[in-house]
Simulated assay, not measured.
Amino acid sequence: MKYQSQTAFTHTQADKIGILVSNLGTPEAPTKQALKPYLKQFLSDPRVVEVPKLIWWFVLNGIILNFRPKRSAQAYATVWTEEGSPLLVHTKNQAKGLQQRFSEKYGDDVVVEYAMRYGQPSVENALNRLLEQGARKIVVLPLYPQYCASTTGSTFDALANDFTKRRWLPELRFINQFHDHDPYIQCVANSIKAHWLTHEKADKLIFTYHGIPKRYLLNGDPYHCQCHKTTRLVAQALGLKEGEYLTTFQSRFGREEWLKPYTDETLKGMPSKGVKSVQMICPGFSSDCLETIEEIGEENREYFMENGGERYEYIPALNDSSEHLNMLFELLEQNLHGWQVGDDYLKRGEMAKQMGAEK
């Protein structure tokens, strides 16, 4: 059969709205054996590595996959929990919290699932679960505030590839960024303020984002600009002055030039310039993961302290905090406007009008 059908479909079932939240991915275990297929899937994506396919095949299979899985497994082992990968745990809890909020307001008419772009649960499996529950309209939210072809664009590729195999396609809405969404900015700012309530301000607040090769920016990717806009808006919300904060980029890979300034090199040089205390935040990560817990929380701490730093603090990602879930719920609900939920249609501004009438 050329096209995939829904095995549990009946013509009498009620149509529902589906919500799919997705994140980058995680291996199934912190082992070399589990890392190899995960890294192969991740690094084989042409959105992630824009290198001629034949050349990259030899580099990936002949060199990288023979050495990197063991090293990556050791890093994952340092952050792994009894429940599994932190990224998977937080994403699962985010989906659970969103389902609770939609159920409280819309009953059984809205269903929420989560997926990983690489690894499990896959985008295909999550779509299957939504469609089998009767979702005929689906909103997809990649949990990357800033758009990047390597992350958000790749998520859309996975959806598009899946849809080419299906007989009956759902209506689709795709949220490709929320880097300047005011409730998101306030969430990040409030998380920093909460940290300041129990810790004094540091000499410098550093906004660190996952890096990408510089040529992606030169080829038109908006990620670099959106990261800087997020920083600027959060700094404004905090009332910070120029010089009190900085944007850097982490997690570079290979010898190619990536977005600068590099987080690790910046931290190594700061103590000699009189910056003895720093606070780090990663606004591009909706969930804590290897890159925040190990790379920023531990590895870069060592760089800073070994070079004369005196105080280093990592401010956690928003994860499944109530304020973050409320923001994501509001963002998703805005993207349901005009769709029928049960017997009603969501209308933009309806709540605002009701609130105005009550005054």
Rank of each mutant, 00 (worst) to 15 (best):
W258K: 03
K229V: 12
H90W: 12
P271G: 10
P261V: 00
S277I: 04
D288V: 13
V21Q: 06
L143F: 11
E82G: 14
R301H: 09
E171Y: 09
F249V: 05
T230K: 10
L43F: 02
T12I: 15
E113F: 04
Q334E: 11
Q186K: 08
L267D: 02
Y312C: 02
H181Q: 09
E132R: 06
L24C: 10
V51T: 12
V123D: 01
M270P: 05
Q13T: 14
K353D: 05
P213C: 06
A77Q: 15
L143C: 12
G18I: 00
E244Q: 04
K276N: 10
M351Y: 09
P52E: 10
F58A: 14
I212T: 07
T164C: 06
G342P: 05
M116D: 08
V139W: 00
G239D: 06
D108I: 09
S122G: 08
E298L: 12
E256T: 11
E350P: 00
H224N: 03
S321M: 13
P283I: 11
I212Q: 08
K204E: 00
T26C: 12
E295W: 01
W196F: 05
H90Q: 14
V59Q: 14
L267P: 00
K214W: 06
K2M: 11
T208L: 04
Q94L: 11
D203A: 01
L205A: 03
V140G: 03
Q250H: 08
E294V: 03
T91W: 09
T208G: 05
Y314I: 08
G211N: 07
P316H: 14
Y76M: 09
P142G: 08
G153E: 00
T7S: 15
S277L: 03
A75L: 04
S150P: 02
A34Y: 05
C225H: 13
K70T: 10
H337Q: 12
E302D: 14
L88W: 12
D203W: 01
P52L: 12
A95I: 03
R255W: 09
R173V: 07
Q236W: 07
R252S: 06
R232Q: 13
E244M: 03
F67H: 14
G153Y: 00
L259E: 04
K229A: 14
Y76P: 07
Q334S: 13
Q146P: 14
R173C: 08
L65G: 01
Q33T: 14
E299D: 11
K359Q: 13
M355S: 07
Y144Q: 11
Q186Y: 10
G119Y: 06
D162H: 05
L332R: 01
V112E: 01
R117M: 01
R255K: 13
Q279S: 09
S287A: 15
H337Y: 10
K40W: 02
Q94I: 11
V48F: 00
V139Y: 00
F285V: 15
K347S: 02
